[in-house]
């Protein structure tokens, strides 16, 4: 059966076909594909940004050890004046060694328990009450909370990073501004401090030499008090030293690196 269609109808069919092809093609083929292309192009741009960031991260990661090493060196250098610990036996031997080296005879020494402090300020929150009892042992010192310990532990990863959360608002140049870290929000010092009261005998020159020797150590050991007195034609030299210490970032500070002799022991205690 032949379909007899006039030219005019053919032209109408052509127009209809053209419109249908264009409409359907655009609607169901081109538009979805273009949408998909647009979305994927946007995704591509995002991933390109992420890739650029990742490439920068990879490049930075390659330099991380050197930047970390530099920062560690600077931080270690900034704390070089602090004693590596306030371990009482170590402190005892070190200070007595200086006195002995200068010819002074130590008659008595009282080493206080460590407290949290910053030089030039009166901050102290020592858990031991800052008592000035005679040396007991070094255990108490490890429990004193102070900023440098917190930050050192945050660096070494030994404890939770409370340092980063405090975000250090202090200026760094103000001696009286200490950031509160720790649990109760109490203001604590940056370092820990032990006070050593010594009574020595010797000559005036030896006492002066002791003061100079303490200063020459380049350590944060402050002579907070002293007195020269003549007793029985002998000079009695009393001195109070404030020794500042902090947890160091590495073990490079070997000031107290000596081995105490092992006692030979005795049969009975008394």
């Amino acid at each position: 059966m032949s379909l007899n269609i006039s030219m005019r109808e053919k032209i109408l069919l052509f127009v209809l076909g053209l419109v249908a092809i264009c409409f359907l093609g655009i609607q169901f083929l081109i538009m979805p594909a273009a949408d998909s292309l647009g979305n994927n192009s946007a995704t591509l741009m995002q991933t390109q940004v992420q890739v650029a960031q990742a490439q920068a991260d990879v490049a930075q990661a390659k330099n991380a050890p050197s930047s970390l090493s530099k920062a560690l060196s600077e931080a270690t250098q900034s704390a070089s004046g602090l004693l590596p610990s306030l371990d009482k036996p170590s402190l005892h031997i070190w200070i007595f060694g200086i006195a002995k080296d200068k010819g002074l005879t130590v008659k008595s020494a009282v080493i206080s328990d460590p407290i949290s402090a910053t030089p030039g300020t009166a901050i102290s929150t020592g858990n031991s009450g800052g008592g000035t009892g005679t040396a007991t042992n070094a255990a108490a010192s490890s429990e004193v909370a102070y900023n440098l310990k917190t930050y050192a532990e945050a660096y070494t990863g030994n404890k939770g990073n409370t340092a980063s959360s405090s975000a250090s608002t202090s200026s760094g140049t103000s001696a009286s501004s200490s950031t509160a870290v720790g649990t109760s929000g109490a203001v604590i010092g940056d370092a820990m401090m032990v006070s050593v009261d010594m009574e020595m005998t010797g000559t005036y020159a030896q006492a002066n030499a002791f003061l100079d020797a303490v200063k020459k150590t380049k350590r944060y050991v402050s002579v907070s008090g002293f007195s020269y007195k003549i007793k029985d034609k002998k000079l009695t030299f009393d001195v109070t030293l404030q020794c500042y210490a902090a947890q160091k970032l590495d073990s490079s500070d070997n000031l107290f690196n000596w081995a105490l002799p092992v006692p030979s022991g005795q049969k009975d205690l008394m």
Partner: peptide, 13 residues
Amino acid sequence: QYKQAAGRVSYGY
């Protein structure tokens, strides 16, 4: 932060 705190100690000292 460690350096900053050490700086405060140094300044105070």
